[in-house]
Write a protein that binds this DNA or RNA. Structure first.
Lengths: 223, 223
DNA sequence: GTCTATACCCTGATAGAC
DNA sequence: GTCTATCAGGGTATAGAC
């Protein structure tokens, strides 16, 4: 259910985004979207000629949410580029936990489902992922000589994005953020090693604690 | 199309596995499965009371394919535990490239789609992923003192599985194995660092080449 | 175990008044 | 822009002969 004082078009999009995340695109009927968005069939097809057009609008909507809800705040609150990367992880985690994503990224769900069936949507999703990877890569370059000069910045950025998305998949499958937290902890260790801090403590799971905003990491071994 | 000299049940399962991977579960109709498996509606519902029962059989079928096509061969051909892990990656890559998966793991697709809608299937998929993670963890422990004693074996195993699955997602989205290759190369670097081989060369993208069976890594920068 | 025929429902999409 | 009513088609699943 979506607050009333918005435009019908906006309500349709945000409602659909939520339903697509939870149920998938194919399993979400137009009728359900219309009902939960407090709209009607006439309104729907006035704004979107077909269901697939709504899907494209939803992808853009999601990309915007990631920008305003994760990337921009992370850039605001941290001046150190590497710390900014892990702030992104932390804000992502918050979205998964308390925020609207409740254990599942809308991008991951859509990517897996529509890759083969909707070429246009696939291309748009690939663009969004590339932009995320590009952001991370830029941060890695800004870290300058803190990272090895021979580092493959683009490759590491791709690893980061792939790992996070895979971790979201694992978290959803296990109904637990434990896989996500484990992945973040390992990425931290990797970054520490790259920064040549090779003390034995850095390799232990709690070598560097998860940022303070992410308290729950106790049960991650149960995965 | 599936070869004839098999049982109808087996043909239905393998055909469905392929269609689910390509189109997704919801978007694959029972009629299509029946048609492409050279079966009939009567046969289908004789073996499977409902479509969801077929889905469970498909999950088991896929898990078996991974065992016989990836994990077992990797164990046979390599005696070094860490090398065995990367052999697993390489065999996975071959399946994505030449093998039946053609740019998309059936497990990844199903995981993303059915997590929320089919609790029983979700639980079964989680088991399969846990078994993969357990295999990797066992290999890491067998590596003994080559890895830091304080290493969190389970966490690293989870990272590996999450990263591979995320990389498969990226590869599918980009219609290219480049994201997959980039992820593997970074994992290799991470493992090298953990083994205390911190030469500058180890950080470069081609620091340690991908195994000989995976020639195509030239275009990975284009992602 | 396999076949044909079919029931029944829900889907995306349309028509036309307001 | 919004509404109601409705369509045509494909969805899963069943019945009953062979």
């Amino acid at each position: 259910m979506v607050p009333r004082k918005t435009t019908t078009r906006a309500r349709l999009i945000s409602t659909a985004a939520e339903l697509f995340r939870r149920q998938g695109y194919a399993q979400t009927g137009v009728n359900q979207i219309i009902q939960e968005a407090n709209a009607t069939s006439g309104s729907f097809y006035h704004f979107f000629p077909a269901k697939e057009d709504l899907l494209l609008a939803v992808v853009d909507h999601i990309a915007e949410i990631f920008d305003t809800g994760i990337f921009s705040p992370a850039a605001d609150r941290s001046h150190d580029p590497i710390e900014e990367i892990f702030t992104i992880f932390d804000l992502y985690r918050q979205q998964l936990n308390n925020g609207g994503f409740t254990f599942g990224s809308p991008m991951v769900s859509l990517s897996a489902e529509v890759s083969e069936n909707h070429p246009q949507v696939r291309a748009r999703l690939a663009e969004v992922f590339a932009s995320w990877s590009g952001r991370i890569e830029g941060l890695l370059r800004r870290a300058g000589n803190r990272l090895p000069p021979s580092l493959d910045h683009m490759g590491l950025a791709q690893l980061v994005v792939c790992t996070i998305e895979g971790a979201v998949l694992g978290a959803r499958l296990n109904r637990s953020l434990a896989p996500f937290d484990a992945a973040i902890a390992q990425l931290r260790t990797y970054f520490d090693l790259l920064e040549h801090r090779m003390g034995a403590a850095a390799v232990a799971p709690a070598g560097r604690p998860v940022p303070a905003t992410s308290p729950q990491t106790a049960d991650w071994r149960s995965w």
